[in-house]
Design a protein around this nucleic acid. Structure first.
Lengths: 218, 218
DNA sequence: CACTTAACGCACTAACTGGTTACTTTCTTA
DNA sequence: TAAGAAAGTAACCAGTTAGTGCGTTAAGTG
């Protein structure tokens, strides 16, 4: 974000006011703060400070701390669901498609740890914010039907067994990655090994792919 | 808690002072509050009120809010690890033993939802409290070796395949139950079904047992 | 019984926290 | 270009919160 010198204007202050940019900075800072400390632990003052925006702007754009949280959460869900859709699993063989989904889910959680913490925080509050979101429901439906169609194609091709509930499968794919990562701190103590070392992370992904493949195998 | 009339003493106040009972009441109230609102969201005043103890007592016995949290968390881990040891899995056939463990883990999470929330809260704080606990490490070792011996017996009996990492298996058994339950609120929205209905809970347990059995099968 | 120890309680505070009031500055457009 | 709308700011507030100072009362002990 370097300001390129403009020969015409000696001191160029392009866009001193930019509602969209300010909003974006607030959302970005809020995502980090909420992920780090939870809804209750996050501080509005700190969010505004890190966003280099006045606290008043948060209330101007999002109404309240909870309104801000809801927007952050909604965006997080839309982000992951959008990324999933881009995988284009319909063009792959069923087995390949499923493995790719397991791999993607793991990588996404790994690269976006805020997502996990936001979801945890939302569940602590009994999903009161997500309940209000219509967008999320629409995206979720597409997501479930994506896995459903992989399963169906696999059964038709004779590589997957019949009768698997796509929702249970979905939950399981998420679970084996999510749990490992969200509990990486207590887990590293309980199991007395560094769960986040490079090899540990590779091993876990391999184990997860294996788990899912065995689950759907005939 | 009705005070039964004592003919000898007009107003009987037996055991006005009882350190152990007060401590226990505080711990019980704290467990509920921490589980409900997390470490940051829990209120010390409310804990003391619900424990019918003076707030001063919390600082007297536990030093600080975080000291109280640490004790609550430690107790929660000791509780589940103790219950696991009581399962006496060594006396069962490997397959039966493993199924029993999956079932137990699920039931325990279901009946003790505070455990999950406490662990979540602790991971939000990067396990800084659990790190200090030596007791938990000792109990954890016993727990891992329990699953290890089931696996070994199963391999020897020719019912389980060889080469499975007991830690990975342990994590997976926990994951498929834990994730489902901790995310039951957002999950019920995303998947548009009540994940906590009686049949849903039964179905999930059956699915989990199946998942683990397929994972270890030859 | 005198005396020490530990349990217990009241009232207080310093720092914080979400939210607001009142105001200035910049941009857009009729 | 005048005026209104929108963006942005600083100072402030009322309620809350973890933590304490200090005094009181019951229980154990020689």
């Amino acid at each position: 974000m370097t300001t390129v010198a403009d020969p015409a204007a000696p001191v160029s202050k392009p866009r001193v006011r930019d509602a969209e940019a300010t909003k974006a900075r607030i959302l970005d800072a809020a995502k980090k703060e909420f992920a780090k400390n939870g809804l209750g632990g996050a501080r509005v003052d700190l969010i505004s400070e890190k966003a280099k925006a006045n606290k008043r702007m948060i209330y101007h754009y999002f109404g309240s701390k909870e309104g801000l949280f809801q927007t952050v959460l909604e965006n997080a869900y839309v982000d992951i669901r959008t990324a999933e859709q881009k995988l284009n699993l319909d063009h792959l063989e069923p087995k390949q498609a499923l493995e790719r989904l397991v791999r993607f889910t793991w990588d996404y959680y790994l690269k976006n740890p805020e997502f996990i913490t936001l979801v945890n925080s939302e569940n602590l509050h009994r999903a009161k914010h997500l309940k209000k979101s219509e967008v999320v429901k629409v995206y979720s439906r597409k997501f479930v039907s994506m896995v459903e169609s992989i399963l169906q194609r696999g059964v038709a091709a004779g590589v997957f067994r019949a009768g698997i509930d796509p929702v249970q499968l979905n939950i399981t794919i998420a679970a084996i990655g999510y749990y490992y990562l969200t509990n990486r701190f207590t887990g590293s103590i309980v199991f007395e090994r560094d769960l986040m070392s490079k090899t540990a992370i590779e091993d876990r992904l391999a184990f997860n792919i294996d788990t899912i493949m065995r689950l759907v195998a005939c």
